Structures are given as C-alpha cells and as structure tokens.
Deep mutational scan, measured.
Amino acid sequence: PVYLSVKADNSMFIGNDPVTDETMITALNALTEGKKDTTIFFRADKTVDYETLMKVMDTLHQAGYLKIGLVG
C-alpha cells in the first residue's frame, strides 16, 4: 500500500520519505510505476486545515490518482 501523510506542521511524507508539493507526484509515479489506479491511503494530522487537505487531494486528482482512501 502507498501512504501519503500530512503532519501537523504541513510536512508531507510518502511512506517515511519526505516530499514537497513539487515532488509529490514524481515520487508517487516512481513508487507506483505510473499505475494511476493504485489506491493512495491519505492520512493527515487532525490539526491540518481543510484547505491544505483539499489542495493535496486536488493535486492527486489532477495527476490521475482517483483512488484515494482516507485513513485516521
């Protein structure tokens, strides 16, 4: 499974590897070998604001990742 996490300080990680807004999709493409039907499990600290969550989800959708599971 692929886990994308947003921490309380808005830092992002794919698994244990830090990513930025600019590198997130490139890292996901490498990890999933470009398979856009891969489910991305998205988790965020409860203090992360809604705007940040939606920005990340919008970026995922624009890149073609449509299977996003929200996890606690």
Rank of each mutant, 00 (worst) to 15 (best):
N16P: 08
K55T: 06
G69S: 15
A63F: 06
S5I: 15
E51N: 12
K36F: 07
G72E: 13
S11P: 01
D58Q: 13
G69C: 15
I40Y: 00
M54C: 11
A8I: 05
H61C: 09
F42T: 03
G15H: 04
A30V: 10
L4Q: 01
R43M: 14
G34R: 05
L53Y: 07
A30W: 06
I25T: 03
V2A: 03
K46A: 13
S11Q: 12
S5V: 15
V6A: 02
V48Y: 03
E22R: 08
V19W: 02
T38Q: 09
S5P: 01
F41R: 05
N10A: 09
A44G: 04
L4V: 12
D58F: 11
A30K: 13
T32I: 05
H61Y: 13
K36L: 10
T52S: 07
T32V: 06
K35Y: 09
P1H: 14
A63P: 00
E33D: 13
T38M: 09
L53T: 05
T26L: 11
P1C: 13
K67C: 11
G64N: 02
N29K: 06
D58N: 14
E51V: 11
I25R: 02
D58A: 14
E33G: 15
L28F: 02
T47C: 14
L60V: 04
D58L: 12
T52P: 02
V19L: 03
S5C: 15
D37H: 08
M12G: 01
P1W: 10
N16D: 12
V2I: 14
E33Y: 09
D49L: 11
G72Y: 08
F13E: 05
D17H: 13
T38H: 06
P18S: 09
T26Y: 09
I25H: 03
A63I: 03
D9K: 08
Y3G: 02
K55F: 07
T23A: 05
K36V: 07
L4E: 00
K67N: 14
A63D: 04
M24L: 15
K46F: 10
T59S: 11
M24S: 01
T26E: 14
I14F: 07
A27N: 06
K35C: 07
G15Q: 07
G15N: 15
D49R: 13
T39G: 04
S11Y: 06
H61S: 09
A44Y: 15
V6Y: 07
V56H: 04
L28N: 00
V6Q: 02
L4T: 01
E51H: 12
N29E: 13
L53F: 10
V48H: 04
T59Y: 09
V2P: 03
D37T: 07
Y3C: 13
E22V: 10
K46I: 11
G34E: 05
K67S: 11
T39E: 13
P1K: 10
L66Q: 09
Y65I: 02
Y3E: 06
A44P: 10
N29H: 09
K55D: 04
G15C: 12
T38C: 08
K46T: 11
L70P: 06
K67R: 11
F13H: 05
G72L: 13
D21I: 15
K55S: 07
D58K: 14
T26I: 11
A8R: 06
T23K: 05
L28K: 00
M57F: 11
G69M: 15
N29R: 07
P18N: 05
G34Q: 05
D45N: 05
T23I: 05
L70W: 14
S5W: 15
F42N: 01
S11E: 08
T52K: 10
T20A: 03
E22Y: 08
L66W: 15
I68A: 04
V19I: 09
V56N: 02
I68W: 03
H61L: 12
T26F: 09
G34K: 04
A30R: 13
T32S: 04
D45R: 02
T59Q: 12
L66M: 13
E33M: 13
D9P: 10
P1S: 09
Y65P: 00
E22W: 05
T39Q: 15
Y50H: 12
V48I: 08
G34I: 03
A30G: 07
K35W: 08
V2D: 01
Q62G: 10
Y50S: 09
K36P: 05
N29Q: 08
L4P: 01
K55H: 10
A44W: 15
I40N: 00
D37R: 05
A8P: 05
Y50W: 13
